[in-house]
Write a protein that binds this DNA or RNA. Structure first.
Lengths: 174, 174
DNA sequence: TACGATTATGCAACTTGTTGCGCAAAGGAG
DNA sequence: CTCCTTTGCGCAACAAGTTGCATAATCGTA
């Protein structure tokens, strides 16, 4: 149930078209709740039908841009949802399953995959750090909203660093 | 595509019935690839149909136990899959979306939720640590398989610790 | 042995996420 | 102006995950 709310959040930050939303998503909120452009279009349709957002521009022809704004009802729904209690999702990572498989098979070496993952996580970490430097340079005071956005980014950074450390240790130990 | 392979792994560790598999899953592999019993039964059906596992006992009546063994083809498929390259899934956590929503709304305080999540993550960490003490007590030498299983557990521990640290810092900063 | 609670198995319907494709508009190159 | 590429939009089919319920076996207990 998070995708529509992620979209509301993003539209509230800046109203835009579906395609622009999809692009922005890839570079910001999508880091923590990924979505394809098809998912986004579908949800935009539902949100519009529910009256939570409003489209400027007609839905007549394909390929014509439609600009979306969040309505008061949308804002209210987002408040409701963000305050409601929700459980964290457990991790779900195939690499860990594969390690267990390797353990029981005894014939499979995943060192290469771990190294590859280490590199991928290092790349992601690099992207996050670049965003941090760009949006939250040291020495500048942050308002509440800025602090919250920074906290989200720091969670991503912590996560990637945790992966990197684990990869290093696993490679060293195994 | 991971669930069937997680099931193969678990069945390879110890052949059993669907219900027992579901129970074992909750306490071990399921920490990293959760699945409900319905998912498991459905996959068992598919795996059996594909000839990757074999059921001792007839599928005649409901409620009668069926014991599953991994076939050679199943083992081969698991090897193939665990060696094939696969990308890590990005994080997908609603709490982070909610923080961004709170940032843009400006009227929502998530401190309580963060504290609650901190507690949940602490509980999970406690469970992992208990498993670590039970299965990998210090001072005992580990074979390769044990090392791999321990590495998986350490990944879980690292994530939870990372979450805990983040919760603490976010509560302190915000 | 009869009864009720628990355990095991499974169907059906639904929601969410993914993949692949097709069509329309916009915008530059010839 | 025409062609062609890129961008935006969206359908349709599928795969994966979830929820709720129904039924059969099992087991303890009266």
């Amino acid at each position: 149930m998070s995708l529509p709310h992620a979209i509301l959040t993003s539209l509230l930050e800046k109203p835009c078209t579906g395609a622009e939303l999809a692009r922005r998503f890839d570079k910001s909120l999508g880091h923590f709740w990924p979505a394809t452009h098809q998912q986004i279009y579908r949800e935009l349709g539902k949100l519009e039908e529910a009256g939570l957002i409003l489209a400027r521009g007609l839905a007549t022809a394909r390929g014509s841009q439609r600009h979306f704004d969040v309505q008061a009802a949308g804002r209210a729904e987002l408040e409701r949802w963000s305050l409601a209690a929700a459980e964290p999702r457990p991790v779900r990572d195939a690499l860990l399953v594969r390690l267990r498989a390797a353990a029981v098979l005894g014939t499979v070496d995943l060192g290469g995959e771990i190294r590859r993952h280490r590199q991928l996580h290092a790349q992601t970490l690099g992207r996050y750090r670049a965003i941090e430097e760009r949006d939250f340079p040291p020495g500048r005071a942050l308002d509440t909203a800025g602090g919250l956005r920074r906290a989200v980014l720091l969670a991503g950074i912590a996560f990637e660093e945790s992966w990197l450390a684990w990869c290093a240790e696993t490679l060293a130990t195994g």
